[in-house]
Design a protein around this nucleic acid. Sequence first.
RNA 1: GCUUCAUUAGCUCAGUUGGUUAGAGCAACGGACUGUUAAUCCGUAGGUCCAAGGUUCAAGUCCUUGAUGGAGCGCCA
Length: 481
Amino acid sequence: MQRTKIAALLQTEPIGTAVQVKGWVKAFRNSQFIALNDGSTANNIQIVVDSENTDPELLKRIKFGAAIGAIGIVIESQGQGQKIEIKASDITIYGDCNLEEYPLQQKKQSLEFLREKAHLRFRTNTFAAVFRIRHALAFAVHKFFNDRGFFYLHTPIITASDAEGAGEMFRVTTLDAQKPPLDEQGAVDFSKDFFGRSANLTVSGQLEAELGAMALGEVYTFGPTFRAENSNTTRHLAEFWMIEPEVAFNDLNDNMNLAEDMLRYVIAYALENCKDDLAILEARLIEEEKSKPQDQRSELTLTEKLRFVTENDFERLTYTEAVEILRNSTPNKKGKFQYPIEGWGADLQSEHERYLVEKHFKKPVILTDYPSAIKSFYMRLNDGTEPGKETVRAMDILFPGIGEIVGGSQREERYDVLLAKMKAMHIPEEELYWYLDTRKFGTCPHAGFGLGFERLILFVTGMTNIRDVIAFPRYPGSAEF
RNA sequence: GCUUCAUUAGCUCAGUUGGUUAGAGCAACGGACUGUUAAUCCGUAGGUCCAAGGUUCAAGUCCUUGAUGGAGCGCCA
């Protein structure tokens, strides 16, 4: 008999038909009722066992965590709490679960504990929900871009360029770590390395995506990204997934519209397609909030928060306007900021971003036109700014509880301006000749952004630590599993 | 990397001013139970108090160093 997945069973409710289901035991109550889950949905199917006519030795093996199969007739449930159940005629044990050793328990366990058991945490309701939502969001991202005529471009994971300035990189090498070949100066001779030069894991696919956009028009990347920063926070990983669209002929405004549309689309997709999983996470959050003092509880539930984002425009303002708001803000005047707003030019700290998003506007915020000095070399210089107050066509999207979820810009398409900027910022232009070539041959205005996929998942799931929304997180001191 | 808090049973945590034999709830294990919903009820067992060193007549409790974990900050997505 063909196995029926529980998701399909609960949807079609084929009362009266014989089915076979396979999954893992979530609970076995009263030596009679098995709650079975196969991962296809957050919901369980109830298997009713005729315990009087079942081998007691087999009954003993039906334990929390065990993998079993059941064959039986689907009937209308005679109890409360579920519409249908399966009256079992046959039970098969595929894998026993020794509860004296099994770390998971049939009760709430802390996220910190489960983080140390990442190989098993998929089996909890919370993590199964998170990873089903992660899938749905990834699918929605591809669907969003595909439906708009974008091409998915696979940019390299190994890059030879160390000139991008996007952070510390992981070296990729086949040289002997004990006795690497040395050059005349006694330095490691990377010309003897696998690629004939030093190589690293990518920190961004943007520069390569720009090359693709200059012919394909609209491209996006979606792949793993690596940063060897010693970052120890709830929103940084050494290995994370990033989505980077790049669009020819788009300006900063088009870029903001694209990012906002995309975020709203994928969140709406999750609201529509992940109701059961979101319900689990929402209930979890409500439970968690109960232990917090009244003033720290959020005003909105998880789904209300998501719906709010899909239904309201993001607030758009310039860096300069933001600095004015912050300068005149109550916390700044009362000296509550650890980093007081002195004047124009400094980068905003987390506390400032949080004030704007969570207190002042209470919605996602897009900040644009940052000082040139604090942003990357490839961002387009604004025309007509005062000397010393140059700004670039950058945009950062800030989300409540997460901070920067998107960072992007209109790119500097003018060869001379770009070259001058690279020289000023000590970017080796010889190494990036291929990037400069796009500005030499048929250059055009274009724009793009990077979306941190795990940060998006954080927002949608209401989880608060980024290590809980990727299956096997990599961060300083940790690469288990 | 910096700041800060923590580490006691499988899990979550209590442990008073340093003082006799370190506790609870849940989980586990044994039993009961034919309509349960984190089932319930009765019973049993379970400890390198993170590690090393120190102070003291006496350390789970105080001090030093380290490890691990959480939160915040920096770097950013």
